[in-house]
Design a protein around this nucleic acid. Structure first.
Lengths: 139, 139
DNA sequence: TTAATTGCAAAAGTTTTGCACTGGC
DNA sequence: GCCAGTGCAAAACTTTTGCAATTAA
């Protein structure tokens, strides 16, 4: 998603482009893996921007409600978020706990159709994570 | 997994069959969805068994380390656990927040082989969750 | 101006740690 | 009797709430 596009979404919600919000959008745009609230706080510090915990959490909720970011849950990690665009899946190393985002080359459409037919469950989103050992840790 | 089998696993770890541990094994065996620490505490109460929070958390860790249960992360829910045997996936309703466990009829073996080949990542486990609306909430 | 955003204080919820006591085997 | 298991108190960590002050538009 482009920065301009993000700003458009936020303006529709009567959102204002504050220093903290802009920095958080930058941080999520640059992130290659999902970020927790505390990691976002650290990233802001590196940019010499201080923000109260409360503000971070409120902003995360705001960005999630506007659809800019989405929540990700990974075993062994705290609640985290990533940019909504470009649906990512994750490789979580059980050795070094590193996370890598990857795109899934398979397709789940037929499975989602089956769930609608058999379970009467209308899928709108899914998550898929792989746990195991990365190259460094597998020896 | 059979109860006898579970007891065998625990004995190998020098584990003792206490009232609380036995009750927790029963609770997880009967559960149809992943359980959080607080839900486990409530379930124990219903059986007139009181257990300190500390004990619950220590027991959850013990059961996870012995491989009896595994951690499950679902968006919108706290950290939860389910019995390891019979790998389950989940339908999470975004309307009523109910969870249903289902087995996936597809196959991810080829995808896991691709990850080993292209990413040098050795998959040992995966999670897959579907989010959407259940029958009741989709009207 | 004025409504959205922020910081601060405080509370609520979750998970862990240290230590002394209890209870399975 | 030994040592795993337990409860209690306390701390660490995460997330939310209420309110007054600030600031983008």
């Amino acid at each position: 998603m482009e920065t301009d596009e993000l700003e458009g979404i936020i303006k529709k919600r009567n959102g204002r482009m504050t220093r903290i919000r802009k920095a958080m959008l930058d941080i999520f745009s640059a992130a290659k893996v999902p970020l927790t609230a505390s990691v976002v706080t650290e990233s802001l510090s590196k940019r010499h921007i201080t923000a109260d915990r409360t503000t971070i959490y409120r902003e995360l909720r705001f960005l999630e409600e506007t659809g800019v970011i989405r929540e990700v849950r990974l075993v062994g990690r705290g609640r985290s978020f990533e940019l909504s665009g470009g649906h990512q899946h994750h490789l979580v190393c059980l050795g070094c706990h590193d996370v890598k985002s990857v795109s899934f080359e398979g397709h789940l459409d037929s499975e989602e159709e089956r769930l609608l037919r058999d379970e009467r469950f209308r899928v709108s989103d899914h998550s898929m994570e792989f746990y195991g050992l990365c190259d460094k840790c597998s020896t």
